[in-house]
Structures are given as structure tokens and as C-alpha cells.
Design a protein around this nucleic acid. Structure first.
Lengths: 150, 150
DNA sequence: TTTAATAGTTAAATAATTAAACTATTTTTC
DNA sequence: GAAAAATAGTTTAATTATTTAACTATTAAA
């Protein structure tokens, strides 16, 4: 591939990924209750999928320090959406699970977000969106394997 | 398209876009000086491309309130990377432009970020990445046209 | 059994963000 | 042309997200 073609693709990638990131964040926010944030949505979504998980795992997935996760989970525990339980075999480990209310909230919210994503995903042909997501998933794998991503 | 196929694509999109967003943010951060943030990088990058721009334009691009832009630009002015100049025709308007140091910083940093993006973008075939970015750009257009994105 | 490593929290600091109230201009409207 | 409405940007107070460093408690390794 030619030098200027690569540079052009890189530039386009940087611009478009920035725009999509910010616009998508704004749209997701519109679907959430006033007192909930996008990060809180993503955190509860992840815990629902895993059923239970630890701070360390979340910190790695979110690419942040464990103390950032402690702060976030504290807020969600205070809101009654999340609960902590200690592992009886290894008492250092704390599991995070959804409360009943947390489960209700994320279930309702997932429905709204799915409708939102559907409203734009259906503007593409099945083939186009399938190809897009496949490449996107490949990219996710590459990024996850790169060092320094913690 | 079948119902369960759409739902599956939506779920895959949500998962992969989240992972890429967080991992990319972590990688970009590694390339920046200790005292600079990803948002500051994206803001200076945008201003460099436009040469000069206003708070209102930035707020719209970033999908945030104008007061968030005021706060960010204050920090960058304090760091000596950005400057404000008032429009002489319409004295309500304030233009933001890079200082000499700001220009040097963003030029150096853009080079690092380009190398970073190149390191993973070249793992795809030219055809695959071209298709991917085309669909991504279409998506950006659709999101920008959607209401409530401010 | 002392030493290492691991899991998580706390504390202090900063950045990003919002909402509401505000100042200073320019445009509209009657 | 003066009063009213709109526009551009800032300030203030509050909250969330984040980092780094120091810390507690527990488990694994030497």
C-alpha cells in the first residue's frame, strides 16, 4: 500500500472514530434515566452478561485502575443496583452482582438501547453490516492483544 | 432480515464498540505526555484541522454543553497551548486558535498517534480496511443527522 | 514462617460534565 | 428606533470518572 494512501486511511479512521464515539455516547445518554451515566450503563450491562464478576476483571475490561472501579461500584451500591459478596474460599475476592432492582433497570434499559441501535443498523444491508462488525471484532482482538492496554 | 439475526448483530455491535472505545482510549493515552488527556488531544487536533473555531462549534462536535468547552479551553489556555481572540465584527464570538507551542505539541503528538494507528491498521488488507472505513463514515453521517445529538 | 504477591479500599487531586443563572452583544419586531 | 428575543460565551456549584500512592487483609511461595 502506498504511503499517502495509508496516511489518508489513518486520518479518516481517527476522524470518524472520534465522531461516532461522541455522537453514540450522546444518543445512549438520551435513553438513560436522568440520574444514570453511560459508564454506569456499560458497567451494569457487563455484569449482567457475566452474572458475577470482580473489580480486577472490570478494571481490565474498562482499561482503568481498580480504584476507579471501586468508586463506580460504590455509587451503584448506594443506588441499590449492585451488591458485593465475598468469596468464601478466597476472602480477598469480592464478587459484584446485580440486585433485583439492578436487574430490572438494566433489562429495561437494554431494550431501549437495542431499539436505538436497531434504528441505525437497519439502514445498512445485512451483508454490509455483517462485514463491518466482523472487521470491527478483528480490530477489538488486535487491540486487546496489544501491550500496555492493561 | 430475521429478528434473532438483527438482535445478534446489535449485541455484537454494542460489545465490540465498547471494547474498541476503551482499549483505543488506553492506547492513545500511552502516547501522550503525562499532563495531557485524551480529550485535550482531540480538542487540539480538531482546532488544528479547522485552524480556528468557536466554543459553539466544539460543543456541537463533542456533543457536550458549551460550559464544558469553556472549562477545557481554560485548562489549555493556562497551559499555553491555546489562545482566544474576539471577532471584531461580532463581538460575542470568541475564536480559539493554537499558540506556537500548541501547534508544536499537536504536530509531534499527531505523528505518534499516526504510528500507533498504523501499527494495527496495517494488519488488515487494504480492501478490508477501505470497506470498513466507508461503512464507518456512513454510520457517522447517520448518527450526525439523528436528532437529539445536539 | 517469614516474604511475596494478590484483591480490594481509601484519600487527595484533577478533569470532564451538567444545569442554571449570568453578561454582553446582535437581531427581530412592532 | 426602542423594547424584546435570540445568540455567544462565562461563572458557579455539584457530580462523576479518573489517577497515584499508601493502605488492609488475605493467600501463595521461599
Amino acid at each position: 500500500m502506498q504511503r499517502r494512501n495509508i496516511d489518508d486511511l489513518i486520518e479518516r479512521y481517527l476522524s470518524v472514530s472520534f465522531i461516532v464515539m461522541r455522537k453514540a455516547a450522546a444518543l445512549v445518554k438520551c435513553e438513560l434515566d436522568e440520574d444514570m451515566t453511560n459508564d454506569q450503563y456499560y458497567l451494569l450491562r457487563y455484569i449482567k452478561k457475566k452474572a458475577k464478576c470482580t473489580s480486577t476483571e472490570l478494571a481490565s475490561m474498562f482499561g482503568v485502575n481498580k480504584s476507579a472501579i471501586t468508586a463506580m461500584t460504590n455509587r451503584l451500591v448506594k443506588k441499590g443496583l449492585l451488591q458485593r459478596t465475598r468469596d468464601q474460599n478466597d476472602r480477598r475476592v469480592v464478587y459484584l452482582t446485580l440486585t433485583e432492582r439492578g436487574n430490572e433497570w438494566i433489562t429495561e434499559t437494554e431494550e431501549k438501547i437495542h431499539k436505538l441501535v436497531e434504528s441505525f443498523i437497519t439502514k445498512f444491508s445485512e451483508r454490509e453490516i455483517e462485514m463491518f462488525i466482523q472487521t470491527y471484532e478483528k480490530l477489538a482482538c488486535i487491540l486487546q492483544e496489544m501491550e500496555g492496554t492493561s
